[in-house]
């Protein structure tokens, strides 16, 4: 069977091409989804890629969250469809209420663009099962508003339930609470992270191929479902 992975393009999305390529590297069929079309085209999972949807106007992700396609994504996620938000996609999933918290301006004010080590804290989600718990992976981080913020009770809940999926290793690059780089929903199907696994799927074009594991994890989650 062919696993179909939808990749959304909003006005201002940048990383949809790399996200689709990553899905194909994992031997999925990448299906383009358009922000203005609520039709998910029968996909098995959705990637909300990075970029600057709607120019980051108002707040990052605040306007994209109301796009017609997002209504369908929110409904499908409620039924257990795996959804991955990368960078701006993570911001959109937070604005949409699929993940708790919010992303704010980096504490150092500068846009950060570098290869970043992450520690895998949870390998039971639909998007992280191929990693060993505690493994360290190197993927690009490129964002100006990547500081993860949430109320203390939300942070305590995420930590207590093991819902921090990735944590920054070494110096905190953006002021995120508890060095949080990525989190998951309570059911482990929706994951969002600021760094870019889709840029690290082949040593020819990225720092490593460490990011490919996320897309291979999804294949396992869909095939075993």
């Amino acid at each position: 069977m062919s696993v179909r992975v939808g990749v959304i393009t909003f006005p201002g999305t940048l990383d949809d091409v790399d996200a689709a390529r990553a899905a194909r590297y994992a031997e999925a069929e990448a299906v383009p989804l358009w922000h203005g079309d609520p039709d998910l085209k029968g996909v098995d999972a959705v990637i909300v890629p990075g970029g600057f949807s709607y120019g980051d106007y108002l707040r990052c992700g605040a306007i994209a969250r109301f796009a017609p396609v997002m209504g369908s994504v929110i409904e499908a996620a409620g039924k257990g469809m795996p959804v991955l938000g990368i960078c701006n996609g993570f911001q959109i999933l937070c604005e949409a209420g699929l993940l708790p918290g919010a992303l704010i301006r980096n504490s150092g004010l500068h846009f950060v663009c570098k290869d970043q080590w992450l520690k895998v804290e949870n390998n039971t989600t639909a998007w992280s099962s191929r990693y060993e718990k505690g493994a360290e992976i190197l993927v690009p981080l490129k964002s100006g508003e990547g500081g993860y913020q949430a109320t203390q009770s939300t942070v305590d809940e995420l930590e207590g339930e093991g819902r921090v999926v990735f944590r920054y290793v070494g110096d905190n690059p953006n002021g995120s609470r508890n060095n949080i780089a990525g989190i998951t929903s309570a059911n482990g199907r929706v994951v969002g992270l600021m760094p870019h696994p889709e840029h690290a799927i082949d040593a020819l074009t990225g720092p490593t191929d460490d990011g490919l594991g996320m897309f291979l994890s999804l294949m396992d989650a869909v095939v075993n479902a």
Partner: peptide, 8 residues
């Protein structure tokens, strides 16, 4: 629901 994000 729109102009502000109650989380932050």
């Amino acid at each position: 629901t729109f102009l502000a994000n109650p989380v932050i």
